[in-house]
């Protein structure tokens, strides 16, 4: 059952996995009712095509243009903007920072999210599970601006954290405008995604399997490692990818908590497009970001699926 979740997780051109809708399977008899369906779906589809797909295609075209300072953009077909990215050590570093910050945040989300998801499924009553899940999701939807402001209050030089450790006689720590602070901020916004995803896959694992393993003498950790982990792998993969993608694309957290000297990819895109007005390069940055994310998540997907197949044989 959990295997199907993995096989249907589609990777889109945008570089992210969207959990598919749980639609009924196609049947032959409905073929002739083709026209009303198109009429119903057309306006929404057209809207997305015009407001998202079209602009993305246009942006890709722009990424091949040449940037001439003073006159913005000169029409051309050149890979110069992409070459500039891979030749410039500054942008290499921006990408490297984005990658390690995303990787670390994702790992921390997995480690912190699993116990919560497991607790919610195996120990909380149905009523409490619903309440706690809502409590997990609420902070996520408070908005990046509010959440970031809150972390600034906590992590600032005279912030809550330093005031707190000051009470026990520890001297203040510089947290604001450090990578550590960015990771803390990212983990707090990505954790809900991980918890919700893991929760739904652990829900599908028969608790009797764990009871069987422990009655045969396996310790709890062995049971987790040999029984729960393999079965939860599709959910772990989905949650990990979601968190990784979202942190690759993070904007508000690195800008406000990381400060001016800390650069990640999404802020760099904004910087080039809106501030430097270098559209060709900004566009190229956006497509590099999406391509790197897509390649990494697809590779991870293939590797884990291969491993998973070996396990299930």
């Amino acid at each position: 059952m959990s295997g199907s979740a993995m096989s249907t997780a589609t990777t889109s051109p945008g570089g992210a996995t969207a959990p598919p809708l749980n639609l009924p399977a196609p049947g032959a008899r409905d073929r002739r009712r083709l026209s009303p369906a198109f009429g119903l779906a057309a306006p929404g589809t057209l809207f997305v095509v015009l407001a998202l797909m079209g602009p993305l295609a246009l942006m890709f075209r722009y990424s091949l243009n040449r940037f001439v300072p003073g006159q913005m953009m000169v029409e051309a077909v050149t890979l110069a903007n992409y070459q500039k990215f891979f030749a410039d050590s500054y942008y290499q570093e921006v990408l490297a920072t984005t990658l390690w910050v995303s990787g670390l945040s994702t790992l921390l989300c997995l480690l912190a999210g699993f116990p919560v998801a497991y607790f919610l499924v195996r120990q909380a009553s149905d009523k409490w599970k619903g309440r706690l899940l809502l409590l997990v999701i609420l902070p996520l939807l408070m908005g990046n601006a509010v959440r970031t402001a809150a972390w600034m209050v906590i992590l600032g030089d005279k912030g809550l954290f330093n005031a707190f450790i000051g009470l026990v006689g520890v001297s203040p720590v510089k947290l604001m405008y450090t990578p550590t602070a960015v990771v803390i901020g990212l983990v707090s916004v990505l954790l809900p995604f991980m918890i919700v995803t893991l929760q739904s896959v652990i829900e599908g694992i028969d608790a009797n399997l764990e009871a069987a393993a422990s009655s045969l003498g396996a310790s709890h950790l062995t049971t987790l490692w040999r029984v729960v982990l393999p079965l939860a792998l599709p959910g772990i993969l989905a949650g990990t990818m979601l968190c990784f993608i979202l942190s690759m694309n993070a904007y508000a957290t690195p800008v406000l908590i990381g400060g001016p000297s800390f650069q990640m990819m999404a802020p760099a895109v904004y910087q080039q497009v809106a501030k430097a007005m270098n559209w060709p390069f900004g566009a190229a940055l956006a497509f590099v970001l999406m391509a790197v994310t897509l390649v990494l998540t697809t590779t991870a997907n293939i590797l884990v699926q291969r491993r998973y197949r070996r396990w299930s044989e």
Binding site: T10, S12, G14, G15, A16, T17, A18, P20, L21, L23, P24, P26, G27, D30, R31, R33, L34, P36, A37, F38, L40, A41, G44, T45, V48, V49, L52, M53, P55, L56, L58, M59, M248, N249, Y251, A266, P267, V269, Y270, V273, A274, G282, A283, A286, L289, M290
Partner: peptide, 27 residues
């Protein structure tokens, strides 16, 4: 309804969720 291209339309409709906000905004 089940019609040819349903999966494609589903992907298109969900895609705004998937394209990074900054990238979609810039485009």
């Amino acid at each position: 309804y089940r019609f040819p291209g349903r999966d494609a339309i589903q992907t298109v409709l969900l895609s705004p969720m998937v394209v990074p906000g900054i990238v979609g905004g810039a485009a």
